[in-house]
């Protein structure tokens, strides 16, 4: 907080320094939000529905930062002394510390490239075809779609609505996802997996279907992205009857710009 010349008794440069710090902190945070957006990495952090919020916040922070920068420049040029900002009002963190922490995190964030979660997280969170969790966005059911147009999450949702694997036997599948070597599957199976995001990376959860291979799964490394085409069959794996993709062709693909599904 700045007060001009109303208290000439207590002048020092601390206040000015804090204004500079605030300005830099705000600009860095605005830059960070916009950078995540411009590099497309924001898709790894947020559900697309909330991206506009982050963008708007990024611009707002830049605007605030500009205002503070303008103030800092003006005061510096004029050499106006700032009355000392109260050190007492801040709770927990003194103002300089708080700004410095925010600035440090923003600068760190500008260097940091968020990576989509991979097999390790998926195994920890438990890949399932019985989505505990499938009720999000049920409007995306399209029972009329051709079976090969269904994404992995479409299949899993369908399976949750009508959980009899035999009902889908013989249907064609063409799905994309990454490889997980599930420890409870025989070595000629892997789980093709995708993360579903509902809001932000904090709540992503994995869904997947077992894929039956002609050979051993070691031909495909974990976390590799693949398009798997084949027919649906039913098998008993790990003590339960499951829908399995009998792979006919497997094509390696690039990790999608937006690795999550919705």
């Amino acid at each position: 907080m700045v007060k001009r010349s109303s208290n000439p008794g207590r002048k020092n440069r601390t206040g000015l320094w804090l204004i500079w710090l605030d300005a830099l902190m705000l600009l860095a945070w605005g830059g960070l939000m916009l950078r995540f957006w411009l590099t497309g990495r924001i898709n790894i952090l947020l559900h697309p529905d909330y991206v506009w919020l982050a963008i708007a916040a990024g611009f707002a922070l830049l605007g605030l930062g500009m205002a503070k920068l303008w103030e800092a420049l003006r005061l510096t040029r004029r050499g106006i002394a700032i009355t000392e900002p109260s050190e007492s009002h801040t709770n927990l963190l003194p103002p300089g510390w708080s700004s410095a922490l925010l600035l440090a995190i923003a600068i760190f964030g500008l260097q940091f490239t968020p990576r989509a979660f991979a097999s390790q997280v998926a195994m920890e969170r438990g890949v399932a075809d019985t989505l505990t969790l499938t009720r999000s966005q049920p409007q995306s059911f399209r029972t009329s779609t051709r079976s090969e147009d269904r994404s992995l999450i479409d299949w899993v949702r369908l399976l949750n609505v009508y959980p009899e694997p035999d009902a889908y036997t013989g249907q064609q599948a063409s799905v994309e996802g990454f490889v997980i070597h599930s420890p409870n599957l025989p070595s000629n199976y892997f789980t093709l997996t995708r993360f579903v995001i509902t809001c932000c990376a904090a709540d992503v959860y994995p869904v997947g279907l077992p894929v039956k291979l002609a050979g051993d799964r070691t031909a495909y490394t974990q976390d590799q992205w693949l398009r798997v085409e084949g027919d649906m069959t039913t098998e008993t794996l790990d003590g339960q009857r499951q829908l399995v993709i009998q792979a006919a062709s497997i094509t390696p693909i690039e990790e999608p710009q937006n690795p999550y599904d919705y």
Binding site: L46, Y50, A54, L61, P114, R115, V121, A201
Partner: peptide, 24 residues
């Protein structure tokens, strides 16, 4: 290291999500 990267991704995801609402 992966775990550390995951924690950081989560951390920034929560921050980027919370920042607009904090601002609001």
């Amino acid at each position: 290291m992966d775990r550390f990267n995951n924690a950081l991704t989560l951390f920034f995801s929560l921050l980027v999500e919370a920042m607009p609402f904090l601002l609001l």
